[in-house]
Design a protein around this nucleic acid. Structure first.
Lengths: 204, 204
DNA sequence: TGCATGTTTAACAACGGTGTTAAACATAAG
DNA sequence: CTTATGTTTAACACCGTTGTTAAACATGCA
């Protein structure tokens, strides 16, 4: 029975890699099985359909992505420091999961029906982040520490800056080398730049 | 012969819509034919293969997207005004072609071989924008009008802010209504916010 | 020992998508 | 009128993918 769970997990791990790479529509169950080092009949034995298997992976990934928004609200400290920490934490998360945003966007575009299933647990997270930010902003503004900003726009600013870096990585990776920079070095600079840009927007 | 070109164009237009929506892998040639109001045999008569048809569409789209970078360099005027105009023009372009960035990224991820074919005409555009920006920045910095910034980062900042708005539209569209805002209104605000954020980053 | 469960093997059915072909038809141009 | 070309119809071959099934095997547990 331990063996049983282990195999299921091996298949799930393989499926995660394949789905994240190619999306639902272009992933072949046979290749998942091959990656898992397992017969393709066994995959159907455990999950019956590709759709079932996908949903398990997808839900997990949606949770990971929406939870990542929570990293934007960091520890309790002066607002600007908090935003800085939040941006950096979020940046690091995306750096560790570079394919995640594109994967989620793509699946939701390709099959909007999935949106209904995950809206219930995305919405509260956004609402929570929104509220926490709102409080922080109101306080910091009243203290004259920052300029006013709609929390939704601040979230968009942060997510935009952090996400695009990694979405464009496969495309720009080689081109950037033409400029003589290592891509790793560029990423480091980019993190600093993202923080600096958002903070500039906030500073009075 | 006029008829001939017209039909070819009708097919290309239909293909463009389908490919932009679903990507190469998930688009069916039969559906392209159906949308074009044309028999599916005729499609093969004109283009022989799905791949051929796709390449025609893809090249056109890559050109559109890379050329859009040129809109960032607007008319000749004080640097900050120029950047403002550039951001707005770029924003408007993406607004008119909201599916374009995701489409291009997706195809290049799915089939990196395509990158080689379009790198030759993307690279010069980036280089041109880079150089023009570099000149503008150097001058404005020496006049004490802006803080220094790497042109590549400035490009990234602008593209990031503008692109994500429309990439997340299908996902966030409904959620944002919960906040009581019209999405159209949100977009208008977003355009202002993008300009403001970038300009804040530049101002001394 | 024997049973239950996990796993493999191998073959198969069903389906859908790509691309081909041949025959018929429409129509404009010579 | 005749020919060339664009177009439709309908049928087809080919292939890959999903999902199923039956039989055999391995292994641990009763």
């Amino acid at each position: 029975m331990k063996e049983e769970q282990k195999t299921e997990q091996v298949i799930l791990d393989a499926a995660e890699i394949e789905f994240l790479d190619k999306g639902f529509g272009l992933t072949k169950t046979t290749e998942i099985a091959a990656r898992a080092g397992v017969n393709h009949a066994l995959l159907h034995y455990y999950f019956r359909t590709k759709e079932n298997l996908f949903e398990k992976v997808f839900e997990k990934k949606v949770h990971e992505l929406s939870d990542s928004l929570l990293t934007i609200i960091g520890k309790d400290c002066p607002f600007l420091d908090r935003v800085k920490g939040g941006i950096e934490a979020h940046f690091d998360f995306i750096a560790s999961n570079p394919k995640l945003p594109h994967f989620i966007f793509n699946e939701l575009i390709q099959n909007p029906r999935r949106l209904d299933k995950c809206k219930p647990f995305i919405a509260p997270v956004i609402a929570a982040v929104y509220k926490t930010m709102q409080d922080g902003i109101t306080k910091a503004v009243s203290e004259g520490k920052i300029r006013d900003i709609d929390p939704m726009h601040l979230m968009y600013d942060i997510v935009s800056m952090n996400v695009v870096v990694f979405m464009m990585q496969p495309v720009i990776g080689e081109v950037i080398e033409l400029e003589g920079k290592e891509y790793g070095e560029f990423l480091k600079q980019r993190k600093v730049e993202n923080v600096e840009t958002i903070l500039s927007r906030l500073r009075v």
